[in-house]
Amino acid sequence: MTRVVVLGAGMVGAACARELALAGFEVAVVDRGGPAAATTAHGEGNVLVSDKPPGPELELALLSRRLWPRILAALPDARAAEWEPKGGIVVATTGESADALRAFAASQRAAGVAAEDLDAAALAAAEPHLTRDCAAAVHYPGDAQVQPAGAATALLADAVRAGAVLHCGREVTGAVARGGRLTGVRTAEGVVGGDAFVNAAGPWSGEVAGRLGVRLAVRPRRGEVLVTAPLPPTVFHKVYDADYVGAVGADAGDLRASAVVESTRAGTLLLGSSRRRVGFDARIRPEVLSVIAGRALRLFPSLAGVPVMRAYGGFRPYVADHLPVIGADPRLDGLWHATGHEGAGIGLSAGTAAVLRDLMLGREPDIDAAPFRVDRPAVRSGGETG
Results as ranks from 00 to 15, higher is better:
Gly313Cys: 09
Gly95Ser: 12
Gly179His: 07
Gly314Asp: 09
Ala266Gln: 14
Ala369Phe: 05
Val47Ser: 07
Ala200Ile: 08
Leu62Glu: 11
Gly202Tyr: 00
Leu58His: 10
Gly24His: 05
Asp375His: 13
Leu22Trp: 09
Val278Asp: 05
Leu62Thr: 10
Gly179Trp: 09
Ala100Met: 11
Arg186His: 12
Asp158Tyr: 05
Ala338Ile: 01
Glu127Asp: 03
Asn46Lys: 14
His337Tyr: 10
Phe372Lys: 02
Val235Met: 12
Thr187Tyr: 08
Gly43Pro: 06
Val172Asn: 06
Tyr240Met: 13
Leu67Tyr: 01
Thr94Glu: 09
Thr183Ser: 12
Ala259Thr: 08
Val319Cys: 07
Gly347Thr: 01
Lys86Gly: 13
His337Val: 12
Thr268Ala: 10
Gly334Phe: 04
Ala115Arg: 04
Thr385Asp: 09
Ala247Leu: 07
Ser349Asn: 12
Ala247Pro: 00
Ala23Asn: 04
Ala37Thr: 04
Asp321Thr: 05
His129Leu: 14
Val91Ile: 08
His237Gly: 06
Glu224Gly: 01
Leu299Asn: 03
Tyr240Lys: 09
Phe104Pro: 02
Glu59Val: 04
Ala125Gly: 13
Val160Glu: 13
Pro377Tyr: 02
Trp336Arg: 03
Ala164Met: 05
Val260Lys: 01
Gly206Thr: 00
Ser263Cys: 12
Val225Gln: 02
Thr228Gln: 02
Leu155Ile: 03
Ala157Phe: 09
Leu270His: 04
Leu303Gln: 11
Arg211Pro: 06
Gly347Pro: 05
Gly249Cys: 12
Ser107Leu: 10
Asp51Ser: 15
Ala162Val: 06
Ala98Trp: 04
Ala17Ser: 10
Asp366His: 14
Ala92Asn: 08
Ala304Gly: 13
Gly179Ala: 11
Phe25Ala: 11
Val91Trp: 01
Gly112Ser: 07
Ile326Tyr: 01
Pro69Met: 08
Ala36Trp: 01
Leu226Ala: 10
Gly13Lys: 00
Val6Arg: 00
Arg132Gly: 15
Leu20Pro: 02
Pro128Ser: 08
Glu59Trp: 01
Ala111Phe: 11
Phe280Thr: 03
Asp117Lys: 07
Asp368Asn: 11
Arg316Asn: 03
Val235Glu: 07
Leu226Asp: 02
Val355His: 05
